[in-house]
């Protein structure tokens, strides 16, 4: 499989000549192609009506609404972590709205660019309650199940080495297998991004018998990736997501966006393209942000719909609150 993909990668490298500007390609094609995680409850998954849903999926839909005026004009490619990079590099998708942590090595020398941070995650640990472990620092000598393919293996190595703690790692190629082995008792603890622990933990037979430890051993800024050297498209992605954040900050929601068109607040007017056309500079229609908010909702609404405390995942906003509420999310001014 992997060899096939590498071969496909080579083939794609062979066959692709110079890329046209991504934005023009999208307008011509009529769909925005996004790469998302294959199956991560809350973020990107297929629901019982066979519809792809989730936080990452909605980010993609917002892009389609902004660029093409219709949130349904998306083509979603479920990609595992490894294949994501190659598929984007070779033009298989326009953007990765995936769970990919922004790191130096991924931003440099891969031919790809991180655009912004849309979700602040961190690596955590899940242990059986019966083990009576209160902190990661109690896990000296423990066996730890982990799924490869992200920064997870390096984080745990760094954390345990820095504290001179011994540990045994059991690395799985796949998240579900890692969870399964942990559940079977192969490991004392299971580590991953806390959002993934929450999402995958739902599939444990007895979720209440397990607990997520308080420590977060890494910072995992997660955000969309685009191909390098296409700043027009990078700007579209970045400012569409900023628009979702700004909308929450300004109190513009999916429900009230139509009334907000009559708002007298200057920044809301600029955001929604009333009296001013910010869109054209980015190659977008004047109502790009309006369409995105109207069809998908603002950042807070997307979060609560898929991840929030009312959902099965039950994640709190945490660091993903707006800057004015003590979180890390901030959109530069729309002016």
């Amino acid at each position: 499989m992997k060899i096939l993909l590498a071969a496909a990668g080579v083939a794609a490298l062979v066959c692709t000549s110079a890329h046209a500007a991504t934005l023009d390609t999208i307008k011509q094609r009529g769909t925005v192609n996004c790469g998302t995680a294959p199956n991560l409850p809350g973020f990107a998954y297929t629901d019982d009506k066979n519809v792809r849903r989730g936080f990452d999926v909605d980010l993609c839909r917002a892009l389609a609404a902004a660029v093409l005026g219709d949130a349904d004009k998306v083509q979603l490619s479920p990609l595992n972590l490894r294949d994501g990079f190659a598929t984007l590099t070779t033009g298989g998708v326009d953007v990765l709205t995936h769970r990919l942590t922004w790191t130096y090595n991924r931003d440099n020398g891969t031919g790809l660019d991180y655009v912004m941070t849309i979700y602040y995650d961190g690596q955590g640990f899940m242990v059986p309650k019966a083990m009576n472990v209160k902190s990661v620092n109690d896990l000296k000598g423990a066996s730890v199940c982990v799924a490869q393919g992200s920064t997870t293996e390096l984080n745990i190595a760094d954390y345990f080495r820095a504290r001179k703690m011994d540990y045994r790692i059991v690395t799985f190629a796949d998240l579900d297998e890692a969870r399964n082995a942990y559940e079977q008792g192969r490991c004392d603890a299971w580590t991953n991004d806390r959002s993934a622990l929450a999402a995958r933990g739902l599939q444990l037979k007895n979720r209440d018998a397990h607990v997520i430890l308080p420590e977060i051993i890494s910072k995992e800024p997660i955000g969309p990736l685009v191909r390098q050297n296409d700043s027009q498209w990078a700007h579209v992605v970045r400012w569409t997501f900023f628009a979702l954040i700004a909308a929450e900050e300004l109190g513009v929601t999916q429900a009230n966006v139509d009334q907000m068109l009559k708002s007298e607040v200057p920044e809301i007017k600029r955001l929604l393209g009333v009296g001013d056309d910010l869109g054209q500079k980015a190659g977008l229609p004047a109502d790009w942000a309006y369409k995105a908010i109207k069809q998908v909702g603002n950042y807070g609404e997307i979060f609560e719909r898929h991840l929030g405390e009312g959902t099965r995942l039950g994640l709190s906003r945490g660091q993903n609150k707006l800057w004015k509420d003590g979180g890390l999310l901030i959109a530069p001014p729309f002016r």
Partner: peptide, 28 residues
């Protein structure tokens, strides 16, 4: 072996190393 976490060439080298280095052509 990659499926059940046995650290062979495919899991460790064509897996983790590929991810960390981002050089699929050379690694494969």
């Amino acid at each position: 072996a990659a499926a059940i976490a046995y650290p062979d060439l495919m899991l460790v080298f064509a897996g983790t190393v590929l991810n960390q280095t981002g050089q699929p052509l050379e690694v494969m």
